[in-house]
Design a protein around this nucleic acid. Structure first.
Lengths: 207, 207
DNA sequence: TTGATTTGGAAACGTTCATTCCCTAATTAT
DNA sequence: ATAATTAGGGAATGAACGTTTCCAAATCAA
């Protein structure tokens, strides 16, 4: 069963009793819990409560706890990517697009939202040495971010908003570390102003 | 029972049967396990095996699993701080001290060492919303790093190696995010060269 | 209508978990 | 010597965990 099957409505109605719950809403609840508690501290009880499903139903729909996480992870990435691309599209120059990407993560990293944390960063911590396949999904998510950032930097170099002296790959990885670090520090509950000042400072990476 | 009591030899021998195991060695084993698996995925079994102690002995010495973590966390911080300060002391200018601090974290963030991860970053993920007191220890650790970095930047501004135009507090927080992000990305297994290139790029924060 | 298929959910299952108990061993104090 | 105290560790405990089972309900196919 693929993530696509789990997260989008099937085109044709399948046989048997139709699913009663809304998959996307259920996954939104699941990812909220996983984000707040981390994978290993999240119990099936936590999930049944948050998703408003009996444990049997969860197991029928997702195979096991890991399956719930992977499906929620897929949805988290999909939603995040959509919002991120919208912010980037609103900017004119490459440098502004980079700034918008930094802003995207900054706005997620303070106050209560920041405390809830990032499912990808959490996944890196929860799975790196314990679940090779889940860890690979995390690697993919980071790689997508890194590539997007490098592309934006190259756009900036093409339109003159970012100096040619910047190494796009090195700067992209530095931004990746910075933005994921924002999410880690955000778990400790910092103010918007502090995080914004750090984000503005980080823009020196493309000077 | 304080962390100091747990991590350093008592000055005067106390009454009763003396402890047979080496506290520092036991905590080194414990922090290795907590680092690799995270707090919630680490069982008492994992700890008895790694620390070579029976569960009863662990509970006598540390009260509970959380007590083992907090003691290991204290030792991790103490060891790390000592090494970090040695590297900083080897540099002449403020800017070089900042670079050495960045290098300290970079050298921990690639290959197998990187995969094992950071107990403080892991702690932020494992405790932020679940254990207020443990989370406070994480906050303290981050704050110490942030303050040290700000101090180094001010030293650089005093000795002329860092421009006065840099906002020391904003840059220090940006470096904090960057270095903790390095540790997150390091969990996915990157090469030394990649991490070094990002670290060099990050030095633009103090230009 | 009947059978096949799929979902929903409550209860049951076996395992693993963190923790406690209790007995023995080693030391200090008297 | 003997008592008091503390450490070591194996076995026991009760709770919580992830998962499976089983049956009723809802749909499609024939």
């Amino acid at each position: 069963m693929t993530v696509a099957t789990l997260t989008s409505e099937a085109k044709t109605r399948s046989r048997g009793r139709p699913r009663e719950f809304d998959m996307d809403a259920a996954l939104d609840s699941a990812l909220r819990v996983f984000s707040e508690r981390g994978y290993h501290a999240t119990s099936i009880s936590d999930l049944t409560e948050a998703m408003d499903l009996a444990s049997g139903s969860i197991y029928k729909a997702f195979k096991d706890k890991r399956g719930v996480f992977l499906a929620a992870f897929g949805r988290y990435r999909q939603l995040g990517r959509r919002r991120l691309e919208a912010m980037i599209a609103s900017a004119e120059t490459g440098r502004d697009k980079v700034f918008q990407m930094v802003m995207y993560y900054t706005e997620l990293s303070y106050g209560e939202a920041g405390r809830k944390g990032c499912l990808v960063v959490g996944g890196a911590n929860d799975f790196a040495l314990l679940d090779e396949e889940a860890a690979a999904h995390v690697v993919t998510a980071f790689a997508a971010d890194e590539k997007l950032m490098a592309d934006l930097i190259r756009i900036g170099q093409a339109d003159g908003s970012i100096p040619k002296t910047v190494d796009p790959d090195a700067a992209a990885l530095a931004f990746l570390c910075f933005t994921k670090g924002l999410r880690v520090i955000g778990k400790t509950g910092r103010s918007r102003e502090e995080m914004m000042s750090a984000a503005e400072a980080a823009m020196k990476l493309v000077t």
